[in-house]
């Protein structure tokens, strides 16, 4: 196991990570680095455990082997209070937004401020309005989460994620199920927030086009292994069959169209037989 602290410009480094769920290995001895101030994307087909990786980085799950360093600290060796202190400096954007359904948009964004700071209500109001303005939803502050569209609730969740001015934001499938306009808005927001606030971003996605438009570095995962990595240009020109198939979305390739089965003709002829 590598125990050395990650180098200066890597905010997060994952070393020899193995994680399994039941008997299925989700990650098999992978190592990744996430550079400070950059947008790093993790791509791969559904079910490769990309969300699991974010939860491992956030310390919500424990790996079987290996370690995760965030800002020089081994996440899984921190005591609870230290882990919570670390999490205050992380923002996470969940796929569903994960807004608290019994509060207004305003209260949702104010939630981390009220929980972790003792700021006066007037200052909280100013901060919340600033964050909502940044995502363009200041006018929606009195709506309830169930009155928002999917894209809007993700933007509110983003405002909430930046409420405590974190050093890093983890995005879980930010583009899934969005119409082209909301998608464009989100892509723009992620890019500009990263540049203006000097954040580090990790995006988990299977949306090839939009993710490669904003990512500085891409890891492609499949079946617990890293099958490709590099800048978007390098990935586009990758000579790995697998990466090619993923990037172009071809129906057949190293990932087969057919679920593993026995021979087609045999299967057809065996109708009527009991087996």
């Amino acid at each position: 196991m590598v125990n050395s602290v990650s180098s200066q410009d890597n905010l997060v480094s994952v070393r020899n990570l193995t994680f399994s769920r039941g008997s299925k290995k989700i990650f098999d001895d992978i190592s990744l680095d996430f550079q400070r101030g950059k947008i790093t994307a993790i791509m791969g087909p559904s079910g490769t455990g990309k969300t699991t990786l974010l939860k491992l980085i956030g310390g919500q799950l424990f790996p079987d082997h290996g370690s995760v360093f965030v800002d020089g600290k081994n996440v899984h060796q921190l005591r609870r209070a230290e882990l919570y202190d670390l999490r205050k400096r992380l923002g996470m954007l969940f796929q569903s937004g994960a807004l608290l359904t019994d509060m207004t948009v305003f209260d949702n964004v104010a939630f981390p401020l009220r929980e972790h700071t003792h700021l006066p209500e007037s200052m909280i109001r100013t901060l919340v309005l600033m964050k909502l303005q940044a995502v363009g939803l200041r006018g929606a502050k009195d709506l309830m989460p169930n009155e928002l569209s999917g894209g809007m609730s993700r933007r509110v969740a983003l405002a909430r994620a930046i409420a405590l001015d974190p050093m890093m934001i983890l995005y879980d499938e930010p583009f899934t199920g969005q119409d082209p306009i909301s998608m464009g808005v989100l892509v723009h927001l992620i890019k500009s927030l990263n540049n203006i606030l000097g954040l580090t971003s990790i995006i988990v996605s299977h949306d090839v086009h939009d993710t490669s438009a904003i990512a500085d570095y891409i890891y492609v995962l499949s079946e617990g292994k890293i099958v490709g990595q590099g800048t978007p240009e390098q990935i586009q020109q990758s000579d790995s069959e697998w990466v090619k198939q993923f990037m172009t979305g071809a129906a057949d390739g190293p990932v087969h169209f057919h679920y593993p089965s026995k021979d087609y003709v045999d299967d057809l002829l065996s109708i009527g037989k009991r087996y």
Binding site: Q60, R87, M92, A98, E115
Partner: peptide, 21 residues
């Protein structure tokens, strides 16, 4: 439902203990 819609783990990631809160 809070669990299914990731509100509980969202809270955990905001460093708020969902059991206490």
């Amino acid at each position: 439902l809070m669990k299914a819609t990731e509100q509980l783990s969202g809270m955990e990631m905001m460093a708020v203990d969902p059991v206490k809160r």
